[in-house]
């Protein structure tokens, strides 16, 4: 239930000056306490200080400067990297999904054709794969769009400062320099994928089955009388 609350402002309120003075009082109190008080300011020095993992909630002082880990959240979107297959070749199939969804148009891919694709790879691969990190808006949509887990932003790195704009355009080799092997299995999920599929979204699948009128799955539609 929505409730309409009417705020009544007196002339004193509408003058705003008392409010301004009160606000100044609060901020200035903080200023003088922090500047001339003896207590140290509680703050995390982003990118400089370290913390253990996971951070303890009970004792905030315990983690200070104890272990070496960068103060960045787990899903921090950092510099891009390309992933590799088990055999060390690049996972990307140059499908252009990332380039298509990129709102900043900062991904440029040129596809090439493998001479002898194996069962673990496909014939298409990126000859050229460039991401202009200066144009990138770090939205992460490219990672979500990638159907092959070939592109990730999980390096936990900021792009370092560069001398020239062109240095911020990462080419395929630079993107591969931090490559890892994906946990996704080459060649697909194998025999048991359907069980996992049913366990997760099997409910949704029911909707599409033509068994609304009590027929089981095997019933082929045109054997039935036309519904009138």
């Amino acid at each position: 239930m929505a409730k309409i609350v009417t705020i009544k402002r007196t002339f004193w309120d509408q003058l705003y000056l008392p409010g301004v003075v009160r606000g100044l009082g609060i901020t200035l109190r903080h200023f003088f306490v922090n500047t001339f008080g003896s207590k140290e300011i509680e703050t995390l020095r982003y990118g400089e200080w370290d913390r253990p993992d996971p951070p303890p909630s009970s004792d905030p002082d315990a983690w200070r400067g104890k272990q070496k880990q960068r103060l960045r959240p787990e899903r921090f979107r950092g510099r891009h990297r390309l992933m590799k297959r088990d055999d060390g070749s690049v996972r990307c199939t140059a499908c252009m999904m990332c380039a298509t969804i990129c709102p900043a148009n900062c991904i440029h891919i040129e596809a090439g054709e493998r001479e002898s694709p194996t069962s673990r790879s496909v014939e298409k691969f990126p000859l050229r794969f460039e991401i202009d990190e200066l144009v990138c808006v770090v939205c992460g949509l490219c990672v979500e769009a990638c159907p092959c887990d070939a592109l990730r932003m999980d390096t936990q790195e900021h792009l370092p400062p560069v001398e020239h704009r062109r240095d911020a355009v990462l080419d395929r080799e630079q993107l591969l320099s931090r490559a890892g092997v994906s946990i996704a299995r080459d060649g697909g999920d194998g025999e048991d994928w359907r069980e996992r599929y049913d366990a997760t979204i099997g409910e949704a699948r029911q909707i599409y089955r033509p068994d609304k009128q009590g027929h089981d799955d095997a019933t082929i539609g045109y054997r039935r009388k036309p519904s009138s």
Partner: peptide, 24 residues
């Protein structure tokens, strides 16, 4: 429903051995 089911069954047959490698 009859026509739709029939077409759907035929589409399933068509896709039976199609690799669905739309990505590349």
């Amino acid at each position: 429903d009859q026509v739709r089911d029939a077409r759907r069954a035929m589409l399933e047959l068509t896709l039976l051995n199609h690799p669905v490698d739309c990505v590349i």
